[in-house]
């Protein structure tokens, strides 16, 4: 409370990060939106200003040009890219949950003295370069890679595996790189569960499996929810993984945006792709914000 007493100083503290984020995070979205309404041109920068704010609101409205949007919705390539990104992200999120849950559960049950080390082992890959971790999978998944060699030596397969440059490789890549984002919130919620609850259930004759579904799992739902959003939202717009591990038939919108921007140099169209992607992600992002808020308030 007393920190609030100092009126002017308080505003200085708030103003610096606030202004920074307004200028570098919020305002740019409006610029993206504005640009998505203009045309591509062979100039530097490569677009024509369709309208200027100074000519009055009537002129402004009459000049709005939704050509890029009608183009995106008219071309099945873009529509499919959005749909397949959401599908790939959703499937990967479920797979990540399936891999992460037993791990987080095991970590929460591990002896207390192990837990800081286990946490550290989960965090370390998260701090290691994303690009490098994806790169590491190329050597494993490619036809003459480690996985094929290993399985051939065991005699399980006789032909090289065709995983590299397929959507399967993209699933593996997403599960692998986003695993820590899922484990950490799961672990946080599992670790809080009072073991006495499970003991009570056991004493009353409940089988472990039933106790798990009726007590542990419902209590871990906030962690499941947070983890799924932390994986799903960025995965929808993922670029590096589909680009390096996916094939030509792996459609993902992040890659489409990148190609429009860097290869076709169509900045207005890339902006329109970004605006629609943002709209697709609005609901999950708002859910994530609310979840964080609840978490923060209950953490006090």
């Amino acid at each position: 409370m007393s920190a609030k007493a100092n009126g002017l100083g308080r505003w200085y503290v708030i103003a610096a990060p606030y202004l920074w984020l307004l200028i570098f995070f919020l305002i740019p979205f409006f610029i993206v939106f504005k640009l998505s309404l203009s045309d591509v041109a062979t100039a530097i920068p490569p677009y024509t200003p369709t309208f200027s704010w100074s000519e009055g609101i009537g002129k402004f409205i009459s000049q709005l040009d939704f050509e890029n949007y009608t183009f995106i919705f008219g071309d099945p390539l873009y529509v499919n890219a959005y749909l397949s990104s959401v599908k790939i992200a959703a499937i990967s999120t479920v797979l990540t949950l399936l891999v992460a849950y037993p791990m987080a559960y095991g970590m929460a049950r591990a002896p207390k003295s192990w837990q800081p080390t286990l946490m550290m082992l989960v965090i370390l890959p998260f701090w290691t370069s994303f690009l490098i971790r994806i790169y590491a999978w190329i050597a494993i998944l490619k036809p003459e890679g480690f996985l094929t060699m290993f399985l051939m030596k065991l005699g399980i397969i006789s032909e090289p595996l065709q995983i590299m440059n397929t959507t399967t490789a993209v699933y593996i890549g997403i599960v692998y790189s986003y695993l820590p984002f899922m484990i950490l919130p799961l672990y946080a919620s599992l670790e809080k569960i009072n073991p006495a609850l499970l003991e009570a259930a056991q004493d009353l004759g409940s089988r472990p499996w039933r106790a798990f579904w009726q007590i542990t799992f419902p209590l871990s739902l906030p962690g499941v929810f947070a983890g799924c959003l932390l994986v799903f939202i960025p995965a929808v717009g993922e670029f590096v993984i589909p680009d390096l591990l996916g094939g030509s038939d792996t459609l993902m919108i992040g890659k489409t945006l990148w190609n429009e921007f860097f290869n076709n140099r169509d900045w207005p169209l890339a902006s329109a792709v970004a605006v629609i992607l943002l709209l697709v992600l609005t609901i999950p992002i708002v859910l994530f914000q609310r979840q964080q808020q609840i978490e923060r308030e209950s953490g006090r």
């Binding site: 995070f25 979205f29 610029i31 640009l35 970004a274 992607l277 992002i285 994530f288 914000q289």
Partner: peptide, 18 residues
């Protein structure tokens, strides 16, 4: 909190345009 989950391509593109 939004930038923590926002796809990087969106952040990158919007900053470049700024």
């Amino acid at each position: 909190f939004a930038p923590l989950v926002m796809p990087e391509v969106i952040i990158g593109l919007s900053l470049l345009l700024l």
